[in-house]
Structures are given as structure tokens and as C-alpha cells.
Design a binder for these strands. Structure first.
Lengths: 188, 188
DNA sequence: CCTCCAAACAAACCGACTGTCGGTCTGGAA
DNA sequence: TTCCAGACCGACAGTCGGTTTGTTTGGAGG
């Protein structure tokens, strides 16, 4: 049962790669399953055998993107002892990562609308948001009953600055603003 | 040319009311033009005569909601002299307003995905975001070159807290968090 | 080696949906 | 009275997401 499993995995991977590109370029609504089929050379039945629907396919793509972001984020902060510094470094790393239009469009724009806020948050909790919350807790600068709200607001603010950068504003300005924003919030 | 113009305006209004309810209840994707036609009793041709497409209809609905929010926001802060206090009061008013699920779904969840970030921002600039930026400028607590980024991040953070409240967390906690968040940011 | 099941894929098909197009009706200007 | 533009109609084309039915094939069990 090896050849078959591998073939299946390879197919899923092919679909994921194509779908990721299309979702990034044209958004969720703008990409049709039809196009995914054309570009992968797959049949309808094959695709629906692996993914139960368009939204499930999107979720799989999102999961892949978030995982990749998480890995790179861990690399960026590893070795930093001071929690506050790690938090700032991590946030700035995310800002730089999200210059990739694919990440922006999929993670920040379409995900909440496609999955609904609940499912979106549940997924985020397992990835970037979970890491942010842990980092914020480690700084000890925020009362623990407000930790959740703070983490949410902070991530939202940072994500917004990412989208702002994408609009054309220069990256450095936004980076400085994010840093300043964080410092203001984390002052004792 | 009065009766005709009035009839047209009345029709647009009827469509807008129905569409607003449907978009709020089922989201953009979950709402079909078909249903709008059924519930308004209008014909396809008539609707497409007034609105060029589904997204244009959504934009019109969004415009209406934002305008209504803007008006109520102005009322909430009128008579408050201190800029910082007006800012806080306005933000809290918005938090309370956005308890309405229709507002949340349309303005915060679907709008960016449907219109795209650019068109969404342009529209927001003419409404709540414009007001927030002006209020923030008036406080004089933020260097003017960082004003735009700050305003964006701030609004995003507040909007996020609104969605958090909607998830079930009690309102008062979020209100306190927003207030605290603002005070931390606006400290000299 | 043969049998047989389940995973992988194919293709016809379905209902629902969006947007278009030619055409009708009518208020009101000329 | 004529005539046009705006309001409205409804059939239709094309697309899309998803289902169903059928075919191939790897590999586990006898």
C-alpha cells in the first residue's frame, strides 16, 4: 500500500500548489474549481475524492501557509532570551513575511470570510496567534485576565500594518511604527 | 420627471433593505441574487438596471450601514471638548454599536473580501476611519508622520475586540480592555 | 498465483446561480 | 401628439459547485 498512498499524497500536493497560487492571485471567489482542474489536469472526481469541497480545499491551503509561516517565525526568534525582545522580533519577522501577496490575500483577506470568524480563529490559535499569545504572556507586562483580548488586538493591529505596507507605503516606516506601537503597549 | 425618479428610489430602497438583511444573515456568498428577487418581488432586469452586479449591491448596502454608523458616532461624541476623551468615547460607542450582528458580518467580515482591501479602505476612509484619524490627530499624541499607520492599527485592534465580544466574551471586559489599550497608546 | 476490496481517478450529469439581451410600458419633455 | 429615456420584464446562455456512476489498479489475504 505504498505506491498508492504516495500517488495520492503527490496528487494532493499538486492540487495544493496550484490552488494556493490561484487563491493568492484571484482570491477565493475569483478562482473556480474548474480552473484548478484544468491547471492540474485532474478530473472532478479525483479532486473531490481528496477534498470535500472548495472551502475544504481553501482550508488545506491556508493550513499549509500558516504552518510555513510558523516554522519561519520560530527560526526568527530562536535564541532570543528576553521575552519582550522576542515578541518584537517575531512581530517584525511576520511583517516582513507578509510582504508576500499570497500570504496576505489568503491569510488576512479571504480566510475570515471563507471559514467564518470562529473557524478562522480556531486555526489561528494553533499557529501564529498561539505563538503571539505565549510571547505576550512571557513578557509579564499584561494582566493575565486581559491577555486574550490584548493578544487579539495586537495581532489585528500588526496584520493591518502589513496590509498598509502592501498598499505601497514603504516597509521601513511601517516597521518603525510597529516597533513603536509595541513599545508603547508594553511599557510597564 | 418626479414620479419616475421617486419610483426608482423607492425600488432601490426596497432592494437595499432586503439585501442588507440577507447579507447580514447569510453572508455575501450565502446570499443569492435569486433570493433577493424573490423577497423583493422584483424582476432580474429591474435589479440589474439599478445595480450593476452582486458586488455593487453589496457595496451599496455597506455604504448605507457605514453612513448610519457615522451619524450615530457623531451624536455620541458631540459636545465633548477634550480630543482624547472624544476619541475614547467614540471608540466605545463603536464597540457597542457593532454588537449588532448585521454590522459585524457586513462591515468587518465580508467587506474586505468582497470589495478587496483597496476599495474597502477607500470607503472606510470616507466614514469611520476618517473620523478616527481626525480624532487621533486632534489629540496631538501621535507624531504626524505616523498618524496614518497608527490610525489603521488602532481601528483594526478595536474592530478585532468587537469580534471577540461577539464570540461570547462579556461586553464590559472588552470595553475595559479597549479603554486600557487606548490609554496605553495615548500616554505622552 | 488468483481473488477481491478499496483507493484513485474519470466523465457525464444536475441544480442553482450570475449576468445579458431584446423587448414593453409609461411619465413627462418638446 | 410625438417621442425618448428611465423603469421594468422574463427568457436565455454560460458557469460553477457538487453528485453519481463507472473504471482502473495496487496490493493484501487466501
Amino acid at each position: 500500500m505504498n505506491l498508492k498512498a504516495e500517488r495520492g499524497a503527490a496528487t494532493r500536493d499538486r492540487v495544493l500548489t496550484v490552488a494556493r497560487r490561484l487563491f493568492a492571485e484571484q482570491g477565493y471567489e475569483g478562482t473556480s474549481i474548474e480552473t484548478v482542474l484544468q491547471e492540474t489536469g485532474l478530473s472532478r472526481g479525483a479532486l473531490y475524492h481528496h477534498y470535500s469541497g472548495k472551502d475544504a480545499l481553501f482550508e488545506a491551503v491556508l493550513e499549509q501557509v500558516e504552518t510555513s509561516v510558523g516554522v519561519r517565525l520560530m527560526e526568527a526568534v530562536k535564541g532570543i532570551a528576553d521575552p519582550a525582545e522576542a515578541l518584537v522580533t517575531g512581530c517584525l519577522a511576520w511583517v516582513r513575511m507578509a510582504r508576500d501577496p499570497a500570504t496576505r490575500r489568503i491569510v488576512l483577506i479571504d480566510a475570515p470570510a471563507v471559514l467564518g470568524w470562529e473557524r478562522w480563529r480556531a486555526l489561528e490559535e494553533r499557529h501564529a496567534f498561539g505563538m503571539l499569545k505565549a510571547a505576550l504572556r512571557a513578557t509579564g507586562r499584561v494582566p493575565k485576565e486581559a491577555l486574550d483580548v490584548y493578544a487579539h488586538m495586537l495581532l489585528a493591529a500588526i496584520n493591518e500594518s502589513v496590509l498598509l505596507v502592501a498598499r505601497g507605503n514603504e516597509l521601513e516606516g511601517a516597521e518603525r511604527a510597529v516597533e513603536d506601537f509595541l513599545h508603547r503597549l508594553l511599557r510597564p
